[in-house]
Simulated assay, not measured.
Amino acid sequence: MLLGPFRSSSPSLSGLLWKMPWRMSKTRKMRQRLRLKAVDDVISTVRASGMDVHALHDALALPVEHAMPPKDKYTVFSRTSTGYRKGIHKVPHFTKITSRTNPAGF
């Protein structure tokens, strides 16, 4: 068993441990659309139930999946990225944040 700088680890034995493709596959895009549609269904169900909460008003202001351009479905605004856009597959826990709206012009 080696200790120090020459010990074996997953990255040193096999290269990168988590490989990120530079673009999303068709199936990843399909799953993203299904997630967006599922969120839209939940919002419409809560709206139909007659609940009146502040979070519902914020959710109703978001665009629905079929009204969003592909640029907004699959990328998010990022100040540090070239072109100010970053693929959602590179954003950790993307479905937990509300990022359907981006700054104007981006």
Rank of each mutant, 00 (worst) to 15 (best):
T45F: 10
P70S: 12
L3K: 09
A104K: 08
R85A: 02
A104Q: 05
T75M: 04
M68K: 04
T101R: 08
S49T: 11
V76E: 04
G87R: 01
V53N: 04
R47G: 13
A61H: 07
R47V: 05
L17E: 13
M1Y: 14
T101N: 08
T82L: 08
D52K: 15
K26W: 03
T80D: 07
K37S: 14
R35L: 13
A104I: 07
S9V: 13
Q32N: 08
F94T: 00
K19S: 06
K90E: 05
L36P: 02
G15Q: 05
M24E: 06
D58F: 10
P63F: 00
R23P: 00
D41V: 08
R33W: 07
W22N: 04
P69E: 08
F106R: 01
S25M: 06
T98G: 06
T75R: 02
F6E: 11
K19A: 08
K73V: 11
S9K: 10
R85W: 04
Y84K: 14
L3H: 09
V42Y: 06
P92V: 03
L13E: 14
R7D: 05
S10A: 15
D72F: 09
K73G: 00
S78M: 04
R85I: 02
M24K: 03
G15V: 06
P5C: 03
L62Q: 11
M51Y: 11
V46G: 03
F77S: 00
S25P: 01
S9F: 08
Y84S: 09
T80W: 01
S14W: 15
L16V: 08
N102Y: 02
R100Q: 03
E65T: 04
L3M: 08
G105A: 03
K90H: 12
D58G: 09
R33V: 13
Y84G: 02
F6T: 11
S10E: 14
Q32S: 07
M20C: 12
L16E: 14
K86N: 03
R33L: 13
S8Y: 12
S99Q: 09
D52Y: 02
V76F: 01
W22V: 02
H66R: 12
I43A: 07
F94A: 06
K96A: 09
V76T: 09
P69Q: 02
V76G: 04
L34K: 15
G15R: 08
L62T: 02
M51H: 14
A59C: 10
M30W: 09
V76D: 01
K26S: 14
Y74W: 12
Y74L: 06
H54A: 13
L16A: 12
A61C: 07
D40M: 05
P70E: 14
H54C: 11
S99G: 05
P21G: 07
R33K: 13
G87T: 00
R33S: 09
A61S: 10
L34C: 10
L17N: 09
V46T: 07
M51F: 13
M20W: 12
V76W: 01
H57A: 10
P63W: 03
I43S: 00
K26F: 05
L34R: 15
L16R: 15
G15W: 06
A59M: 11
R31Q: 15
P69N: 05
A55M: 10
W22K: 10
D72S: 05
V39P: 03
K26E: 12
F77A: 02
D72I: 04
K90Y: 00
P63V: 03
W18H: 15
S25G: 15
D40K: 04
R35P: 00
G50T: 08
W22Q: 09
K96R: 10
S10M: 12
Y74D: 03
